[in-house]
Simulated assay, not measured.
Amino acid sequence: MTDLTARLEACYTGVVHDVMRAMGLRDFTLPAELRPILPERPLAGPAFTIEGRADPDADGHETLLAWTGLLSKAPAGSIWVSQPNDRIVAHMGELSAETLKNKGVRGAIVDGFIRDTNFLLEMGFQTWCRGFTPRDIVGHWLPVATDVPIVIGGIDIRPGDYFLGDRDGLVRIPAEHLAEVVERAETAISTENLVRKAILAGTDPQQAYLKHGKF
Rank of each mutant, 00 (worst) to 15 (best):
W128F: 15
G93F: 01
R167V: 12
P149Y: 05
R184I: 03
K197V: 13
G93L: 04
H177Y: 14
G93M: 07
V138A: 12
V171K: 08
L121T: 08
L100P: 06
R115N: 12
E186K: 02
M92F: 04
T133W: 09
E192W: 07
A198M: 01
V151N: 14
G169Q: 04
V105P: 05
P149N: 10
M123S: 08
A145G: 06
L120R: 01
E183R: 14
V171H: 07
E176H: 14
A108K: 01
V181S: 10
E186N: 02
L120V: 10
L100E: 03
E122V: 05
I189N: 01
F113H: 00
A198N: 02
L170M: 10
G107L: 03
L120W: 02
L100M: 08
V148H: 13
G104C: 10
T191D: 07
P159A: 10
T117L: 12
Y162A: 05
P134Q: 00
T133K: 09
G165D: 02
R167I: 02
E192N: 06
K101N: 12
G93T: 04
V138G: 07
G165A: 12
Q126Y: 02
E180M: 09
S190F: 12
D136Y: 08
R158Q: 11
G165E: 04
L121G: 13
V144R: 12
P143A: 03
A188C: 12
G107C: 03
I114W: 00
A179N: 08
